[in-house]
Each structure stands twice: as structure tokens, then as C-alpha cells.
């Protein structure tokens, strides 16, 4: 189950996304002393518990972080991740090393799908429904505004549809390209662009509302 695209392997979470989202043929970054995931999966298929432990330890942190961001809930994230990794062991005999998607692509796809299923909502909420942050004293406007922006962005993400939130998380937190996101979500690149477009529009409007609220709090003070 291999794909040519290698950017789903370890990548720096740097701000210079243009470089991180380079060509799909940019090379695999697996350390020399580590066996590729697919080699571990071959051992796991034969019932090798040590290989399974290595695979879980290798991917647990990123899988959990992704699930945590998508669900916004530690308990749900733990459930999702535990279920996904259990499936890897239980269904190891069904793993087909046949040139399909690589392990990390499958892992991201399953985590995203499970989280969307957990958090499925019919439509995004209206931005007017976002509550004001509790603390808005004008004597520390600058610092509070910075906190507000970050808090509002986190809150705003919960107002997105599960699909929009997944696209935003994979793009901004996992630093994946639109093509990688399309592969994981099993949709077209155009559909990914549309999800990101609607999400950015909504987040932008929410931030404008936040800035206006901050100004009003300052003026009232």
C-alpha cells in the first residue's frame, strides 16, 4: 500500500508553508534507523507485537493531536485513536501490501472520518451566535485582544462544519497540501479548495466581529 506522495511523513510544522508543501516527489524523511511503516505492517501481519508497538509509538502523538483538534475533546480523541490502532492489530491479516495508499494516508483518513462522524453537524452556525469572551477589561486591551483573537479562532473552528474543520486542521496544523488533503478526505482538490474557502470566509468574518468588539470595549472603558 504505497503512494508516490511522501509529504504525509514527518514534516516540520514551520510557518513557511510554501516550502513544506513542495512537490509530491520531494522525498521520504524516514530516519535511516527506522523501518518504513509498510515494513512494520508486514511484520505486524505476521503477528509481530514488537513491530506493532513501534508503529503505535511512532504515530500515536500525531494521530492523537489530529483527533484532539478535530473533536475538540480529549475523551473523544482518545476513543478515536484507540479504536483506530486496535483495528490495525485486529485486522492485520487484511492489510494488503498491494501498491495502494500508504499507512500514514490510511491513518489520517480513518482518524478524520471517525472524528467527522463524532462531530457531524448539519450546517455551520451563524457568526452572530458566537459569544463574547468573558474578560474584556480595557486596561490590558492589547494583550487581551491577542488572547481574544486566538480564543475566537479556536471557538470559530467549532462553528465550522466537520468537513471544513478537517480541511482547516489538515492545512494549517498538519501543513498538508490541498492534494494530500484531497487524498485523505477522498474528495477532489477543487472540493478541498471550496471547503477552505468557505472556512476562511467564516473565520475572517468572525475575526472582524472580534476586532469590532475589542474596539467597543476600549471605547466603553
Amino acid at each position: 500500500m504505497f503512494m508516490a506522495d511522501s509529504r504525509l511523513d514527518e514534516r516540520p510544522r514551520a510557518m513557511s508553508r510554501a516550502l513544506d508543501r513542495g512537490p509530491a516527489t520531494s522525498g521520504v524523511s524516514i530516519p535511516l534507523d527506522e523501518e518504513p511503516d509498510e515494513a512494520l505492517m508486514a511484520l505486524i501481519r505476521a503477528g509481530n507485537q514488537t513491530a506493532y508497538r513501534r508503529l503505535v509509538h511512532r504515530h500515536l502523538k500525531r494521530a492523537y493531536a489530529l483527533a484532539r483538534r478535530l473533536t475538540g475533546n480529549e475523551a473523544e480523541a482518545e476513543d478515536v485513536v484507540q479504536d483506530v490502532f486496535l483495528q490495525v492489530w485486529q485486522r492485520r491479516s487484511q492489510w494488503a501490501d498491494d501498491g495502494g495508499a500508504k499507512f500514514t494516508t490510511w491513518l489520517y483518513r480513518v482518524v478524520v472520518n471517525r472524528c467527522i462522524d463524532h462531530k457531524r453537524r448539519p450546517v455551520s452556525q451563524d457568526i452572530d451566535s458566537v459569544e463574547e469572551p468573558a474578560d474584556a477589561r480595557p486596561d490590558a486591551v492589547h494583550a487581551i485582544h491577542r488572547q481574544r483573537v486566538a480564543a475566537r479562532l479556536l471557538d470559530a473552528q467549532t462553528k465550522l462544519t466537520p468537513q471544513q474543520r478537517a480541511a482547516v486542521t489538515l492545512f494549517y496544523y498538519e501543513n498538508l497540501s490541498n492534494a494530500d488533503i484531497a487524498t485523505i478526505m477522498q474528495i477532489s482538490v477543487g472540493a478541498v479548495e471550496s471547503l477552505l474557502k468557505r472556512a476562511r470566509q467564516q473565520l475572517r468574518l468572525l475575526l472582524r466581529a472580534s476586532a469590532q468588539a475589542a474596539r467597543e470595549a476600549f471605547d466603553d472603558g
Binding site: Y52, L86, W89, Q90, W95, D117
Partner: peptide, 20 residues
């Protein structure tokens, strides 16, 4: 906890499940 649960359970012949 994942290891403990995994090694307690018998292997399944069900296919990998991508969906929610």
C-alpha cells in the same frame, strides 16, 4: 491501554475500515 486491549482480542478477518 491500546496494547493491552489489542493483545487481549482475537484477530479479525474483517477488512480495514476507513469510514466513520
Amino acid at each position: 491501554r491500546i496494547f493491552a486491549a489489542a493483545f487481549r482480542l482475537p484477530a479479525s478477518d474483517r477488512g480495514f475500515d476507513e469510514d466513520g
